[in-house]
């Protein structure tokens, strides 16, 4: 049975509230980063992204699959609220950088939710969300675990650029205008900061991620249609 419009709206807003609260809770763990306001900013963005995608995709009732753009909007709103509170309390972040961070969260949430939609089958929705969240974490932290590999294998090639470029953490850091690979703690963990690399431009990354999300969403819709045509049954409903 499909929920009515009021129920859907209630669930959507409760997802936003839950994401914001969960993000605020996790942020208390990031207090050691208090001397780097930008670190706190991307930490908050990363938390709202992950929590937003997980909550947004699992909060859908029955046989429905969350619409990626709706999850993106929810995560973006949550992060904007949290980042605005953070920026207001800290006073360091500019309004522009907060907006960029919220946009980055929304775009990444769109990509992740499109991936969830691509992989999701009714009985495996939780597994799909977990897989996508885990993959995002692994990719996001690639500069940390992959830096030593690049340093050992090809310190002067394009490896460093690729590793930095594919990481969603880089995208969030660029939104905050932060050279995160030179941050004290990260610099100690990975040698990447001492190799030659360039961060990708924020707006080019935004376009690339958005294009990827759109392509994944189209692909997922095509697969769902062909599967339902093959089975002769109704596909999982996208909550819009």
């Amino acid at each position: 049975m499909r929920p009515n419009g009021a129920a859907r709206a209630a669930m959507r807003w409760s997802a936003v509230v839950a994401t914001t609260l969960a993000g605020a809770l996790v942020l208390t763990l990031l207090l050691p980063l208090q001397h780097a306001p930008q670190a706190l900013q991307i930490g908050a963005a990363a938390v709202t992204l992950l929590v937003g995608v997980i909550v947004g995709n699992l909060a859908c009732p029955g046989r429905s699959v969350a619409a990626p753009l709706a999850v993106a909007a929810q995560a973006g709103c949550s992060s904007l609220v949290l980042l605005a509170l953070l920026g207001w309390s800290d006073g360091a972040a500019t309004f522009g950088s907060l907006l960029r961070s919220a946009l980055a969260v929304a775009v990444l949430a769109w990509v992740m939710s499109a991936l969830v939609q691509l992989f999701a089958r009714q009985e495996r929705r939780h597994a799909s969300v977990s897989l996508v969240a885990f993959a995002t974490l692994v990719l996001g932290l690639a500069p940390l675990w992959g830096g030593a590999i690049v340093d050992a294998v090809a310190p002067t090639g394009a490896g460093a650029d690729i590793l930095v470029g594919v990481s969603p953490l880089t995208y969030l850091a660029q939104a905050a205008g932060w050279d995160y690979l030179r941050y004290d703690w990260i610099y100690r963990v990975t040698p990447l900061g001492s190799l030659r690399f360039d961060y990708p431009d924020f707006w080019i990354s935004t376009i690339a991620y958005a294009a990827l999300a759109a392509a994944l969403q189209v692909l997922a819709a095509g697969i769902r249609q062909s599967v339902s045509a093959g089975l002769g049954s109704a596909p999982p409903t996208a909550v819009t």
Binding site: H35, A36, Q38, D179, Y180, R182, Y183, D184, Y187
Partner: peptide, 8 residues
């Protein structure tokens, strides 16, 4: 003084 993109 740091690289210029952070405060480290």
């Amino acid at each position: 003084i740091g690289y210029g993109g952070d405060e480290r």
